[in-house]
């Protein structure tokens, strides 16, 4: 019980101290996870919409893969990205291993299937409603795709949040490809893991509380934007 009390005071202290190290960890966490989610959306929205609309051989298998990859184990993704980016690996020459870029790549791989699989479902549902009208308009594939993504935008924010939750919370992949290097690749989750392994439980828990608050803030911001914008556009 004492640990929890200390943890809350540690968390409070961390928050008000504006400690430079702490802020850089928070900043890097946000930078890595937000970049990964942005990239994942860039790939996942069109991919999910394409799989929802296109009819091609092996489509069922692609859907199965996407759904399965929603549960990709972060350590496995980390390991594979590690192998690809390590000096002996195919992309070793880029020298990306143990940099934030490598962490962004790993998290993008983790988040993209989530974005694509959920987008596919949402777009498929919207197609049931919009299909005849868009076909009646003789809309081309690009118009169809952009119309559906655009009009599903409020549902898709939930998808973005799901992806962000996955990215900001995972530790396995960023630990392996980032290496948890102080002032370089240390993010909140890897810092928590480190503090825990060193026995600084209250510091670890304090960081954990801050991480939760961060997630809460991001979600609240999206929800506020969504409710006000949603009312105007009547997503119902």
């Amino acid at each position: 019980m004492e640990t929890f009390v200390t943890a809350f005071s540690e968390a409070g202290a961390l928050l008000v101290s504006f400690d430079r190290d702490f802020l850089s960890i928070v900043g890097l966490s946000l930078r890595v996870s937000l970049s990964a989610v942005a990239l994942a959306c860039l790939i996942g929205f069109p991919l999910g919409a394409f799989v929802a609309l296109a009819r091609f051989p092996g489509r069922g298998f692609v859907i199965l893969l996407l759904n399965t990859f929603m549960g990709l184990p972060p350590v496995v993704v980390g390991l594979i990205v590690f192998l690809v980016l390590s000096r002996a690996g195919p992309l070793g020459v880029l020298g990306l291993l143990f940099t934030p870029a490598a962490m962004i790549i790993a998290q993008t791989i983790l988040v993209t299937p989530i974005v694509a699989a959920l987008t596919r479902q949402i777009v498929a549902d919207l197609w049931v409603e919009y299909g005849e009208h868009l076909r009646s308009l003789d809309a081309g594939p690009v118009t169809t795709l952009t119309t559906l993504i655009m009009d599903a935008r409020y549902s898709l924010t939930t998808v973005v949040l799901a992806g962000f939750g996955r990215a900001i919370a995972e530790v396995g992949a960023v630990m392996i490809v980032g290496g948890n290097i102080d002032h370089a690749t240390r993010v909140m989750t890897t810092a928590i893991a480190l503090e825990t392994s060193q026995g600084n439980l209250s510091t670890a828990l304090g960081l954990g509380i801050v991480l939760l608050l961060l997630a809460l803030t991001v979600n609240a911001a999206v929800q506020i934007i969504n409710t006000s914008a949603g009312k105007r556009a009547a997503l119902a």
Binding site: E132, S136, D138, D151, A233, A234
Partner: peptide, 16 residues
């Protein structure tokens, strides 16, 4: 195709 139009029993209203 582009010189035809159709109006449905339940109008399809885009979220705009």
């Amino acid at each position: 195709a582009r010189r035809q139009a159709m109006v449905f029993q339940h109008p399809v209203m885009l979220r705009r």
